[in-house]
């Protein structure tokens, strides 16, 4: 899975936002606000991480979460991005 080219993750006043910088992403009519975990996963999705790699990255970086919770979180996040048209097929 990979984020579509044409999105840019940046920090505005301490908040992580994803903005659109290309025609391919213009159908996403808005600006995405991400929390810290969302931004963490987005950065990995920019590199084309798989679901398993995202879960592994969460488990390595967050000590207060078990694998089932991490996987559910990844699935929810990926679904949200897919619905918003942010990921390449």
């Amino acid at each position: 899975m990979k984020t579509k080219s044409g999105f840019m993750l940046r920090s505005i006043a301490g908040c992580k936002v994803v903005v659109s910088v290309g025609k391919r992403t213009l159908d996403f009519n808005g600006i995405i606000n991400l929390n810290d975990t969302g931004a963490f996963l987005w950065e990995r999705l920019e590199q084309g991480a798989t679901e398993d790699e995202l879960v592994k990255a969460i488990l390595e970086n967050y000590t207060d979460v078990d694998e089932a919770t991490a996987r559910q979180s990844v699935v929810n996040f990926v679904k949200t991005l897919c619905d918003a048209g942010c990921l390449d097929d």
Partner: peptide
């Protein structure tokens, strides 16, 4: 860890920002 699928608190991003 905050649930990633849960959106961040909604806030308006100004054009100045």
């Amino acid at each position: 860890m905050t649930e990633a699928g849960q959106s961040a608190p909604r806030r308006l991003v100004s054009l100045k920002e």
